[in-house]
Every structure is written in C-alpha cells, then in structure tokens.
Write a protein that binds this DNA or RNA. Structure first.
Lengths: 139, 139
DNA sequence: TATCTAGTTTATAATAATTCTAAACTAGAA
DNA sequence: TTCTAGTTTAGAATTATTATAAACTAGATA
C-alpha cells in the first residue's frame, strides 16, 4: 500500500463514520494506522508520542475524544488488563493477549493460537458480544 | 462448617500470611468469607456494606489496604473488566466471567464450563501465571 | 467566494478512584 | 508492664478521565 494514498483513505473512513476529517483526527489516523504491526497504547503514551516534536500540538482532551470516537467507530479495540488505565489496540480482529505483569506490556495472541472447545451459553436474553482471553505472564 | 469456629480459622489464616489479626481485618474476613456463594465487589461497595450500620467504622484507607493485602495473600482475586474500577472476587479458584456491559455485573463461569484445546506457549523466560476468559454480554 | 452553523478543539476545571503521609493506636513479644 | 513494629486513620496528594464553555473550522449553502 502506498503511504501517500492513505490520507484519502482516512478521509473516507472518517466520513463513513460521521466523523469530520479534521487535521487532528487525520494526524492521529496516520500515527496509529500507517504501520505494519499492530500497536498497543494508552492515552498517555499516545499523547507523548504524537506531541513529541511537532510544532502544532494536539490537546490531551482531543486525544481522549478521538480515541473514544475511534473505539466506538470500531477502529480501535479497548483492552482491559492493568487497573486504573485503559489500553487500546489497533488490531480490531478478534484476538487475545499476553499481559506481562512485570513490564506491563501487552502482546497479541492470534485467534488461531487459542482454541476453545467448550463455551458456556450466555444468560437468558443476553448475547455474547465478545470473548477474550488474557494470559498473565511473569518471570 | 460452624460459623463460630471461623474466627479462629481467620486468625490462623491471617497469621500464616504474616498479617496481624486485627479487629478490622477479622471483621472484613467475616464479611467476605462467611458466606455460601462467591462474592464480587468493588472497594466502594465493600466500604458501603461493611460500614452500613456498625457503630465502629472501618476507614476507607483500611479497606483499600486490606483488600490489597488479601489479594497479595491470595484470599481474593482481582478481576479486570470495566475501566477505572477494580473488581474483586472471593472465588480464588481458576475460573472465568461473564461481564454484562449493561448492568456492569460479573457472573462466575466455572472453569469446567470452558475448555481450551489449544493454548500458546509463553514468550521465552516467562511463565503463565493465570489464564482468564472474559465473555462480554449484552442484550 | 463569502457566510453561516453544527461539529470540533482547546485549556482548564471538576470528578473519581486510588495512593500517600504522618500521627495516633495496638498486638503481642520480651 | 513496657516497648516496638505493624496497623489504622483522616485527610492530602496523585492519577486518569470526563465535563465545560469559549474559540475555532469544515464544509454546506447562498
């Protein structure tokens, strides 16, 4: 994929979710999605990295708003691991995680690396929205 | 098990973890562990319930300290579901959860209700500490 | 192209959960 | 009974997140 094409793609993507393609959102799109590997982050780390050197900073409030909007739109997946902090993942496919309790780092586990041979029936009137396995690891 | 015996048991249990059996800790033990069913709670709910009517209140700081100490000692299990709040579980056996996104309530899934037929090898030098499945449900 | 407006960004304040602090208290060893 | 390390406590501090409201802007419309 040619990088220079991505901007147009992001404009379309945002429009299709009723999100105006603002400078800030496009900059965040480029930062998050112009990469080969999936990317795990917290709002704190995203804020630091995206505002590292650029002259025009994106406010923290906008980072929060954008990450939330992208999560609702389905561009990002929220992962619950460590308490008191939300992690996000650019890999929105159904998949699982190792969570290193020492370094507090997340690593993807591809969904084909875990097989469930038995899954319980959800309570009456409820549907399964998502099933996630977190494997906590330590030294 | 005869309830009146439990106090001695808790004293022993605490001592064996190098935790002095103080009034506060024993009261919290009784509240948490003198019950048939497993109990899910947040620090907020525990604080409210334990200080509902008693003349001698346990301070919020002590509730936090005790819950942390009990978790480290292995009497409680911390569950990560909703962001910005820690849930705890008196069921310390390996097991899984439904998390209702509407009501934000947790329900246990007994470990024999889920079978994993394939589990990935942890990264080099790391050991699996715990594997947990969270099934998010909604209407 | 200029105007207009709803959507967006921003700095800052407010909130919520948790952790820290340091003084007062206490279990239990000596 | 005395002593001390461990514990409790109220309140302050910290951290992550959300709310607020004024300034800005994308882009539809004239």
């Amino acid at each position: 994929m040619i990088i220079s094409d991505n901007l147009k793609m992001y404009v379309q993507k945002l429009r299709s979710s009723n999100l105006r393609p603002t400078k800030q959102r496009l900059k965040i799109c480029k930062f998050l999605f112009d990469r080969e590997k999936t990317f795990h982050f917290t709002v704190e780390t995203l804020n630091k990295k995206i505002n590292k050197n650029g002259a025009t900073k994106i406010s923290l409030a906008t980072i929060y708003n954008t990450v939330e909007a992208f999560t609702i739109a389905g561009y990002l997946k929220e992962i619950l691991t460590s308490k008191n902090k939300s992690y996000y993942d650019t890999n929105i496919k159904s998949h699982h995680h190792f969570y290193d309790e020492g370094s507090k780092e997340l690593t993807d586990i591809h969904s084909n690396q875990i097989k469930l041979s038995k899954v319980p029936v959800p309570p009456k009137g409820k549907k399964i929205k998502n099933l996630e396995v977190i494997i906590r690891i330590q030294k």
